[in-house]
Design a protein around this nucleic acid. Structure first.
Lengths: 187, 187
DNA sequence: ATCTCAATCGTACAATATGTTCATTACAGG
DNA sequence: CCTGTAATGAACATATTGTACGATTGAGAT
């Protein structure tokens, strides 16, 4: 890709996230982003259809990193097949999220958080879906999946607001409130 | 209060919720609400400062009903002190939420959901805070409270999307994923 | 019935934001 | 060095927001 495009795209992302740290999404105008990024008005619209589009693009960029291919391809340090090392998988995701913490904090702070959370939940649904094989049938599987996904997503959100916990600790918090944490407890 | 004011206020609320069923919050303009409510432009601004203000007012109205005074004053059908009948309390809240289902669905559908959820969580925090007396200290109380609150709020959101479950059923779902469901399980 | 005041109306207005167009300039990659 | 693509910035039409104000209506009190 043309160097110029990369440069512009990056400048917009940085201006945007920088603004998100100061004010909430809905109060940021496209013009402000353009000024902060120091680009021409038409240049912005050549890259992004709208402000929402930009937010979406940013989220995509972040999640492509967090849920990068190596995650699905990386049961390398755990040969016990699947199912077993949920803890490892979760911790791994948390490590990646921690890398992008600076960006995520801003997005989550304002009203752009909703879109981020939705993105996150979509990815998480894929991760957790496989783990819900044998379940007590008293509760709809659909409810259970939503529960797990939201639970984890909200844990992430909480973590982003509370500095100073390691991925392992957070992983522990999460698992201790979920059936996975104490295998055998079928409830 | 002047009958005219009530009428206007009600007309705005109904126009607003009706619009929310069709399109998301951010895409609804004040003018659309005014037209749908069939009132004069200046009348709207005499009642509400801004669109956000309207949403806030609507949420307040709903929650004043859901968490009405009788809830805190109504351990009447449960004399076992407190702590015991969490199930009853929760079910009660769910009944009230069910009454406003028509409104809530629209609000939750679009990007106004975030504000509604925040409101809900604030109220829930008060309810659950009292229930977290004796806790395993391995997990921060703050995390635990957030977990409970989000868990319940997301359960509500799920319920609003999935017609056909009774408050008692939902109450059961929720409690079966939480330590409260199986008292004695300290984890 | 009538009086009074507050609420509504609707038009007008200024300010701001949005998204598009286009001719011009600058630069990346071959 | 050449070509095509990206960036520029100004200009434009449109839409939205919030405010102002005089005129009208109707609610509630006497």
């Amino acid at each position: 890709m043309d160097r110029r495009q990369q440069k512009t795209r990056q400048a917009v992302f940085e201006a945007f996230t920088s603004l998100l740290e100061k004010k909430s999404y809905s109060r940021i105008s496209v013009q402000e982003i353009i000024d902060a990024a120091n680009i021409g008005r038409s240049t912005f619209y050549a890259h992004f259809e709208t402000k929402d589009d930009l937010l979406k693009a940013l989220c995509t960029e972040i999640f492509e990193h967090v849920f990068s291919a190596d995650l699905t391809r990386e049961p390398t340090h755990d040969f016990s097949g699947r199912q077993k090392d949920i803890r490892g998988e979760i911790t791994h995701i948390l490590y990646h999220l921690n890398d992008s913490r600076r960006y995520i904090r801003g997005i989550l702070a304002g009203d752009s958080g909703e879109m981020f959370m939705q993105f996150l939940k979509e990815y998480l649904a894929r991760v957790f879906d496989a783990k819900l094989d044998r379940q007590p049938s008293s509760i709809p599987r659909e409810y259970m999946l939503n529960h797990m996904v939201c639970d984890f997503a909200e844990t992430v959100r909480w973590w982003m607001r509370h500095e100073g916990y390691s991925p392992e600790e957070i992983s522990g918090f999460f698992l201790s409130t979920t059936p996975f944490g104490t295998p055998g407890t079928t409830r």
